[in-house]
Every structure is written in structure tokens, then in C-alpha cells.
Design a protein around this nucleic acid. Structure first.
Length: 697
RNA sequence: GCCACCGUAGCUCAGUGGUAGAGCACACCCUUGGUAAGGGUGAGGUCACGGGUUCAAGUCCCGUCGGUGGCUCCA
């Protein structure tokens, strides 16, 4: 006699067990028709799921309004679409074996084991989609049925797919008391798949589907295991929403920092220079330099000392730090000592022997530095330190080089050479908490000034089962506790992530998303008890005894490359005036206004404003359009009327109209204030306080 | 590194084995124009690179380099 409580608080009683579909039908025929599934006591289930006891139930239906997120409906449709796609692929490629096909953010995929000689490529998408359309048109019911574990396993053994056997074993290990299958149609007659569900009621309900791309993946995410083919697709309730999604992806591509960066001449990569090695062009360099100066002011206030260190260091330095040879694969190959090279060449030494001898320290060489910390540590160690000297805070925009896998490179966001806004703080145990807070302040200053509000905080902890970490577990415990405690002061939610620590210590990371949704770590603060140990660092305490300092590694931007790459996307290239490579462009209406235009340009230049004049680009509307495409914050149109009155006519990027004329002096004062204030107050708001300036994207 | 796809003018792209194209950008000329494309002319190419098949290759095949997406990795 179940009593069902609905989301609106009303309840209905039944004198026998009922399915979700029954309840929907009891409420109304329209709902019965629309129902895709249900959420029973918080658990997402099929329409056919039978409720035997009192329960809370929400019927899942396709999203109604545009703003209805309806995650459950999308989950059901996409999960079901994955099945339909798998059936279509099996029809077209009978030799494949299915592995695993879940819904994911924005769509779904199915991992498929494809035998040697067969391949699924984007050329096959159309016929897969056609086959899927047929299955959808048949509107076959998703039919769930179960076998007890032993019987289910026996069936899978006889079918011979090690992948499905593995999936089933995992389900059993996780405590499932039955294995479930879903047939698209009638069990026995139609296609079916081992699956925990749930699904939409029938194949006709999966909405508008599109296969997006094909990629490789590894079984169990293990690079040494079987390589699988992963086919990605997405599904939406209708074609309109699918198209809106595709247009959004298109828009995201236009906003991609690689596209914007080329168009705005911010940076370049060059085959001749090398993969992942950034060439900062003049305009991009202005952005980077401006950010560096901005953080530089904050560092001076916090008592940092600037240092400079070389781009290479001897292998022994990195043997001591633990970078070499442990992480040799992710470094540029060592630069071998010239004499050693000669000797080895004379001995007919092989490359393998060379590598061995480098590893064992029999030959020396240099490494392009993969991190700045060893150099900074040697600066700390270069003189005796007293507790009175601490904390010692050494800062450097240090360029490091890492051999990132070629498939991982991605514009400025993942490069092989990049400059960290790095610093290392050497302090006493008692100072750790306060210093970490100071580091977090820097990150918050940057994010606050630039209006970055959409970010995650991750506390990276060690994975207790891994051997890649150096140092004493007791030190790790202390460092992890320090990070957790500091993160709690941020006042924003954070997640603890085991396995995400640096090899020498735990860290607090600030993570943002790029325009196509990938996550990137920007700012980072890391507490380290281990490198001071490895380098045997010490200071003299008040007790006249020798003590070990604690180190904090921190980079509030992360790296200049990644940060600027993110920032390009954050602002879509339309930087606020204080960062913009070109802050003001002067457009004389005609040559008749050349004198006044020159005077305006000269005055702004004298005031330190990055200003240009465009008097050659043809007619005025054309030059205005041109300036808009460069996303220049302020465009000053000057004509005879302005020359007469000593004014400039102001256009602001993102607003398609002339805001009006102001005196040149007033404009210079306002933009100077804006630049010095790192964007606040905004000059156009000050000059046109009455105008609704709107969004300046 | 792995899988798939891609590489034609500075940029965006067309070109399905038979004489290398368009738009924008660029240069020059005309236009002196008050708020998002005025008109004309011109220049610009080892079709990424190397090999192969073919009477003939931008086009088909192999390799290399580079790019994109995903996987793995990211000290």
C-alpha cells in the first residue's frame, strides 16, 4: 500500500505496488506521455521501476522552458542515446566489442574495442547517425531484465567479452545482487547491453542526437592497457536545442585564445622555433608586462625580494632536488658536458650507456630548469640565516622548460617553455600559516582586480598508495594540515583531491575553465617540508641551535603564458584599458583635423597612455570598424568641431555609438585615473555618468 | 606518447587525377569623408616537407613536420 509523495507536497496512495509510469498516468495523461523516468527517494530510475513502499517521487520530463536545466532528463536521454549509438555501430561494425558508455558533461560517449584493421572515423558518422535514426524511428521500448550474478556471469562468459565481464565483476564487487541488461525492444529478439540503467522508456525519446567526434582512450584509463576507440555524441530534447548547443560551441571556438591571439597579434608559435615555445609579440608583451608590474607592486608591499637566476643548472642540483632522473621524461634532455661527450664518443658509447651514466652521476651535464625552486634554495643557502631574517621571500619571473607530451600542448595554456611568477618563502614552522595566507591574498587580489569569479579551489593532497612523493609522512601530515587550514580561510568552497599534490608537498590550486570547458590550474600555493630536508637547509634559532626552515612555493598567476591565455578568453580579447595593448586610438575626421589629432595624440602620449592615430584607413566609418575589430577600449573621433572646442568625441568598445564630446583634459585625467587604478574607476563611467554605459565586454 | 581528423595567399576558406581560385587584409591611385566596410588597379603560391603510383598529383599511397579534439600525463 505505497503512499507516494510528490514534489509539490501532495501525496497519492495506491493499494498495490505501482510503477513510476503508473503514478504519472494516475496524475494525468499528459504527464504519462511526457515521463522519461523518475527520481524515487533521490535515486534516478526507469519509468517501469516499481515502487513497493512509501516513497518520495519526482517524475522526470523533458525540459520545458529554456532555463529548465533538467539534468535528469538529459542524463536519461544521453545515456539511452549511447545505447542506440552502440547498437548502430555494432550493426555497421560487427567485429567490435563494446566496453562502457556513460553520459558525460555535454553529451555521452561509448568506448569500443575495435579489432586491428577496422577503424571508426569521422567519415562513418553519417551512416551511424542514419542507422540511429532508424532505431529511433522504430521507437522500441528500453526493456530492463535481470540475472542473478552467477547466471549473468555465465552468460557473459559464453558471450566472451572480457570488457563486459569486467564491468559485471565490478558491479558484483560493489555489492550488486543482480546484473541488469537493457534490450532496445524485446529481450532475446533485439539488441541488448549489460547496463545498470536507467533509460528513457523507448528509443523514440532520446531527442535530437549528433555524433561529435572520435578519439582514443585506454581501458580503465591505463595507458598500458588496451587501447579503445571512444565515440562522442550529444543529445538534446529537440533539434532547436541541439543547434543552439552547436552554435555555442562555434562561438566558443571564436573566443579561443589561439584564434583571438592571432587576430590581435598577441603571440605566435613557429615550427622553426619549436612546439610549445611561445613568441610573445609586442601587443601580447604589453599585457604580460603590465600584469607583471601589477603583481610586482603587491610583492614589494608584502616584503618580497627580487632575484634573478639562470635558465640552466647542473644535474647535481636536480639530483639533490629529486627532479633528475626521477622526472627525466618530462624534462628537455640534459646538456652533456663537452669533455664527457668527447670521451664517450671515443669509447663508442651508446645512447643507452649515456643515459645510464647520466642517471648514475658518472657524467655531468646541465638541465634546462624545470622549476625555479632549486636555484632559489641555493640563494637561501648562500649565507648563514638567523631566525631574525625569516621569512625570506625570494621572487622571480622564472622561465622553466618541461617536455610536455606533444598531444598535450595547447596554445598558451599548455606550453613547453613558460614563465612562472614564482617565489619561494623560507620561514619557521610558526610562520607557515601567516605566510600561506599572504600568498592566498595575492591570488585574491589578482582575481578580484580582473573580475575572475568563476573558479574552483582545490587542495591537492598526496595519494597514500603512490610512491612518487618524497619525504617523511609526518612532514606531509603537517603540510597537508597547514593547507587545509589556510584554504578554510578563503570563504569559498574547496575540494580536497588526493593524488593531486606536488611530489614534494601538498598545494592549494586555483582552477578555471577555458572557453571549451577544460580546466586549468592558475594560481598555486604549496607547502614544502621536504626540499629543505633534501638540501639540508638551516637557520639559527633564538635558542642558538640550528633549525630546519619550511618552504612555501607560490605562483599567484601560475604562469604568465597560461594566465594571459586564460585572460584573453575571459575578456574575449577586449581587455580593460589598463591592460589593453592599445588603449586609445585617435581618428581624425579628415586631414583638415590633422593638427588637432596630432595634438591629442601627443598629449595622451605624454600622459603615458598607449595611443595611436589612424588617418590612413579610408573613410571614417571604415576606421571606426577597424578600431572595433582591434577591441581598443577608447576611440577618439576628432574633427573641426572638436578642434574648435578643444574636445574629443569618445567611443567606448562594445557600445555602438558616440558617447559625446568631452574636453581633452577631462579625458586625459579620466583615463589616467582608470589606468592607475587598475581599471577602477572606469573613465567612460566618470565622463558620462548620466549615460547608461552598459556592458563593456 | 596514443587514436582520429586536418595542413592551398598574411587570415578565413573553395578547389574529387587534366592550365592554382574567392573574400578579407596588404600596396598604389581616385575619393577629404562627423561615427561599424567609398571606388579602381595591383602584388601576393615550391598547394607544409620528403618519397612513391601515374602520360599527368593540390587531389591517390607511404613517411616526416606542424595543428585540432580526445585519452594518458602535468614534479
Amino acid at each position: 500500500m505505497p503512499t507516494i509523495v510528490l514534489p509539490d507536497g501532495s501525496s497519492r496512495s495506491f493499494d498495490a505496488p505501482v510503477s513510476v509510469a503508473d503514478v504519472a498516468a494516475d496524475i494525468g495523461a499528459g504527464l504519462a506521455k511526457a515521463a522519461l523516468g523518475g527520481r524515487v527517494d533521490g535515486e534516478l530510475v526507469d519509468c517501469s521501476h516499481v515502487i513497493t513502499d512509501d516513497a518520495q517521487l519526482a517524475i522526470v520530463t523533458p525540459p520545458r522552458g529554456k532555463d529548465d536545466p533538467s539534468d535528469d532528463a538529459l542524463f536519461l536521454m544521453r545515456h539511452s542515446a549511447a545505447h542506440v549509438m552502440a547498437e548502430a555501430i555494432e550493426d555497421l561494425f560487427p567485429s567490435v566489442q563494446l566496453v562502457y558508455g556513460p553520459p558525460v558533461d555535454g553529451g555521452f560517449y561509448y568506448d569500443i574495442a575495435v579489432p586491428e584493421g577496422t577503424r571508426i572515423s569521422s567519415d562513418d558518422f553519417e551512416r551511424i547517425e542514419e542507422r540511429m535514426a532508424e532505431i529511433v524511428a522504430e521507437d522500441r521500448p528500453f526493456t530492463r531484465y535481470e540475472h542473478p550474478p552467477a547466471q549473468g556471469m555465465a552468460r557473459l562468459e559464453s558471450e566472451g567479452s572480457k570488457y563486459k565481464i569486467d564491468n559485471a565483476q565490478r558491479a558484483i564487487d560493489a555489492g550488486s545482487d543482480a546484473l541488469s541488461w537493457y534490450a532496445t525492444g524485446t529481450p532475446g529478439d533485439n539488441w541488448d547491453d549489460l547496463c545498470r540503467g536507467p533509460h528513457v522508456p523507448s528509443t523514440g525519446r532520446i531527442g535530437a542526437v549528433k555524433i561529435m567526434r572520435v578519439a582514443a582512450s585506454y581501458w580503465h584509463g591505463d595507458a598500458d592497457s588496451d587501447q579503445l576507440t571512444r565515440v562522442y555524441g550529444t543529445a538534446f530534447p529537440d533539434a532547436k536545442r541541439l543547434n543552439a548547443h552547436l552554435e555555442q560551441l562555434e562561438e566558443a571556438r571564436r573566443r579561443d585564445h589561439r584564434v583571438v591571439g592571432r587576430k590581435l597579434e598577441l603571440f605566435a608559435f613557429d615550427e622553426m622555433v619549436g612546439q610549445g615555445l611561445t613568441l610573445w609579440k609586442p601587443r601580447g608583451s604589453v599585457i604580460r608586462e603590465t600584469l607583471q608590474q601589477f603583481i610586482g607592486e603587491a610583492l614589494r608591499k608584502q616584503g618580497y625580494d627580487q632575484v634573478f637566476t639562470p635558465h640552466v643548472g647542473k644535474l647535481d642540483l636536480y639530483r639533490t632536488s629529486g627532479h633528475f632522473p626521477y622526472y627525466a621524461d618530462s624534462q628537455f634532455p640534459p646538456l652533456v658536458d663537452r669533455e664527457s661527450m668527447k670521451t664517450m664518443a671515443a669509447e663508442g658509447c651508446t645512447c643507452g650507456e649515456l643515459a645510464n651514466r647520466l642517471e648514475e652521476g658518472e657524467i655531468d651535464g646541465y638541465l634546462l630548469k624545470p622549476m625555479n625552486c632549486p636555484h632559489h634554495i641555493r640563494i637561501f643557502a648562500s649565507e648563514p640565516r638567523s631566525y631574525r631574517d625569516l621569512p625570506v621571500r625570494l621572487a622571480e619571473f622564472g622561465t622553466v622548460y618541461r617536455w610536455e607530451q606533444s598531444g598535450e600542448l595547447g596554445g598558451l595554456l599548455r606550453a613547453r617553455g613558460f614563465t612562472q611568477d614564482d617565489a619561494h618563502l623560507f620561514c619557521t614552522e610558526d610562520q607557515v600559516h601567516g605566510e600561506v595566507l599572504g600568498c592566498l591574498e595575492l591570488v585574491q587580489l589578482i582575481f578580484g582586480t580582473l573580475g575572475i569569479t568563476d573558479f574552483e579551489v582545490r587542495v591537492g593532497l598526496r595519494d597514500p598508495d603512490s610512491t612518487k612523493y618524497v619525504g617523511d609522512p609526518a612532514n606531509w601530515d603537517r603540510a597537508e594540515a597547514a593547507c587545509q587550514k589556510a584554504a578554510e580561510t578563503l570563504g569559498v568552497p574547496f575540494s580536497a583531491e588526493p593524488g593531486e599534490a606536488a611530489f614534494y608537498g601538498p598545494k592549494i590550486d586555483f582552477v578555471v575553465k577555458d572557453t571549451i570547458g577544460r580546466r586549468w590550474q592558475l594560481g598555486t600555493v604549496q607547502v614544502d617540508y621536504n626540499l629543505p630536508e633534501r638540501f639540508d637547509l638551516s637557520y639559527t634559532g633564538a635558542d642558538n641551535a640550528s633549525h630546519r626552515p619550511v618552504m612555501i612555493h607560490r605562483a599567484p598567476f601560475g604562469s604568465m603564458e597560461r594566465f594571459v591565455g586564460f585572460l584573453i578568453e575571459h575578456f574575449d580579447g577586449a581587455f580593460p584599458a589598463w591592460i589593453a595593448p592599445e588603449q586609445v586610438r585617435v581618428l581624425p575626421v579628415s586631414d583638415k583635423s590633422a593638427d588637432w589629432a596630432n595634438a591629442v595624440e601627443a598629449k595622451l602620449k605624454t600622459a603615458g597612455v598607449r595611443v595611436t592615430q589612424d588617418s590612413h584607413g579610408g573613410r571614417l566609418p571604415n576606421r571606426i570598424r577597424e578600431a572595433a575589430q582591434w577591441k581598443i577600449p577608447y576611440v577618439l573621433v576628432v574633427g573641426p568641431r572638436d578642434a574648435e572646442a578643444g574636445t574629443v568625441s569618445v567611443r567606448v568598445h562594445g557600445i555602438e555609438k558616440d558617447l559625446g564630446a568631452v574636453s581633452l583634459d577631462a579625458f586625459v585625467a579620466a583615463i589616467t585615473d582608470e589606468v592607475h587604478g587598475h581599471g577602477s574607476p572606469v573613465a567612460s563611467d566618470v565622463l558620462f555618468a548620466d549615460e547608461p554605459v552598459g556592458e563593456q565586454s
